[in-house]
Amino acid sequence: MAEDAVVAESRATTYTTLAEPEFRHELEVKRSRFITVLHRTGDEDQARSSLAGLRKEFYDARHHCSAFVLGPDRSVQRSNDDGEPSGTAGAPMLEALLKRETAPGVADLSDVTAVVVRYFGGILLGAGGLVRAYSESVSAALDRAGMVHRRRLRVCAVAVPHAVAGRLENDLRAAGYVMADTSYEAQNTVLRLALPDDPAALDAAVERLAALSAGRAALVPGGSEWVDVPIG
C-alpha cells in the first residue's frame, strides 16, 4: 500500500490541536459506514501506534485509511489510502486537516492523526464519491471536536503554602494568566504561569503577583515550553 509524504516549510510559535486525546464521529454514505477517529499525536511513532490500535479494534473493516499532520510547523504530513483507489482517501483526508480553518483565514491544525474506518455497504461510490466521503468524514469530526491553541511560552514558577494556593491560582486566572501544570512539595504548592517571552510581560506578572500575595510570593523565571491555551 503506497504512502504519500509531503514536507511543509514553515516555522511557528503557535498552532492549534485537539483538546482531548481522542474524538470519534461516524458518517453513513449509501450504506457504507465511515468511522472517523481523531487522535492527538506528538510524533510519528504515536501516529502509527494510533493506526495500529484501530486496525486491531476494527479488525473486520475493509479499509483503515489515514492521514496525519505533526509538528508546530506541520513539517510531517502523511496519508495512506489503505486499498482504496489511489488518491481517493488519504489525500482528501490530509487536505481536510491542512485546510481546516481554526480562525478566519488561519489554517494551523497540527499534531493530529485522522483514521477513517470504512465498512463497505455494498454500493460502489466511484472515485468522486469516495473523495467526498473521506473528506466530509474528517471535516465533520473536526467540526465537533474540541480544540486548544499550543503556544511557545515562558513558564515561571511561584511556590506558596498549600492553604493559599487555590485562591491565588483563581486570582491569577481571573487576571487573565495562562496556568501550566501545578506540582506539590512538602510545604508548598508550586504554581506555574505561562507568559509571553518578553521582559515587559515578566515585569507585569511580578507586579501583579506581588499585589495579589501582599508581597509574600516570588516569581521564579523558567524556560520556554509548549503550553495548551484555551480558545476564546
Rank of each mutant, 00 (worst) to 15 (best):
D45T: 14
S213D: 07
A200Y: 00
F34A: 03
M1I: 01
T36H: 09
S75P: 02
E20F: 00
R100M: 04
R173Q: 12
D197A: 15
A194R: 04
A12I: 08
D203L: 12
A194K: 08
A127R: 12
A140D: 15
G222L: 11
F34I: 01
A214W: 03
S66Q: 11
A186T: 12
A186Q: 12
E57F: 09
A127F: 03
A96L: 05
H63Y: 12
R55E: 08
H39L: 14
G122P: 08
A103Q: 11
P85G: 10
N80F: 09
P221M: 11
S183H: 10
P196M: 07
A2P: 15
V7N: 01
L153T: 09
Q187N: 11
V138A: 10
S10Y: 02
L212W: 09
E44M: 04
A67V: 06
L98Y: 02
V190T: 10
V6N: 00
V76M: 10
T102A: 07
V76N: 04
D228L: 01
L209C: 06
E136W: 03
L193I: 14
G53I: 06
T113F: 04
R132F: 01
H64Y: 00
R192C: 10
A175G: 05
T13L: 15
R118G: 05
A204V: 02
M179D: 03
G90F: 12
A218G: 05
Q187L: 15
A8N: 10
R208M: 08
V158M: 14
E3F: 04
E9V: 15
S32V: 01
E101L: 13
D43E: 03
D60K: 15
S79N: 09
T182Y: 02
V29L: 10
L94W: 10
L193E: 04
T88R: 03
K30W: 00
F120H: 11
A5K: 10
V29C: 08
P92Q: 03
D60F: 03
A201I: 04
F23G: 02
R100L: 13
F58I: 05
A133K: 05
D108Y: 11
R152D: 02
L70E: 11
S66E: 01
G215F: 10
G121W: 08
S213P: 10
